[in-house]
Amino acid sequence: MKRLRINGILGALLLGIVGGLALISVFWTPYDPMKVSLRERLNPPSLIHWLGTDEFGRDVLSRIMTGAAESLVVSICTVAFAVLFGTLIGLFAGYVRGLADRLLMVVSDALLAFPGTLLALGIMVIVGPNKYGIIVALGIAYTPSVLRIVRASVLSAREREYVEASRVIGNSELVTMFRHVLPNCTAPLVVLATSMFGWVVLAESGLSFLGLGVPPPAPTWGNMLASARPHMERAIWLGFAPGLCIAMTMLGVNLLGDALRDRFDPRMEDR
């Protein structure tokens, strides 16, 4: 219990830093993140530029902050997309069973058979390389795993006697589904959603790295990493800063996710 609480606080702190940076960047950044200054190319970290400058002389700290906002918005929207659709479809499939379930599972298994990033790449080609394209593409790519988890929990939850008890009381199927089945499936879902948040930050970075994400010059952690690659030998700080941000976010999300899951389960209260 003690250990969990410390983990939760640590996770919240890490996310708080990243989120705080993103929030501040909306109103203020040390320099204009887009301003090219060829005279200051590839300057190492100094008092003037805390995290140094990149190959066009842009301030890395400013770009990290703006990129944080971009990356977090994309990740949150993607996770929300996947969780919303995955949960609704999974709940429906697991609760109704039968032919509808089988058809939905065939489609979802087909999607699962592709590697997530590859699938997203394919979808990106159709929707186009921009912020919304990433959200839709990654959202669709990650929906099947949510669907699987939710359906599996629903299958076990719907056999519990309190579900039948709800029917005996006179509740409609819809009420039973949302009031008694869904809340008892959330524990694995919270864990999945938090770790998925991490994957999406990574996948988004990966797509941007490949040049398919948010198009430059707008900064994201991914395309910053990508543009840092050719200069890695001379300017290590260029890759270090966005990499550290990605790592911090993932660690924070995982720590907080575990703590949240335990917090929301009434059975864990007095343990």
């Binding site: 519990r160 006697e161 309190y162 008890a165 009381i169 006179g170 509740n171 809340p183």
Partner: peptide, 30 residues
């Protein structure tokens, strides 16, 4: 609405996410 059931297993017939008052009050929804 006028026929009810008491289950065998008291451990799985109550929704673990509802309080006792919520469980007992739920039939009154109807």
């Amino acid at each position: 609405l006028s026929a009810q059931l008491v289950f065998q297993d008291p451990y799985s017939s109550l929704d673990p996410r509802q309080t006792i008052a919520e469980i007992v009050a739920e039939p009154l929804d109807h």
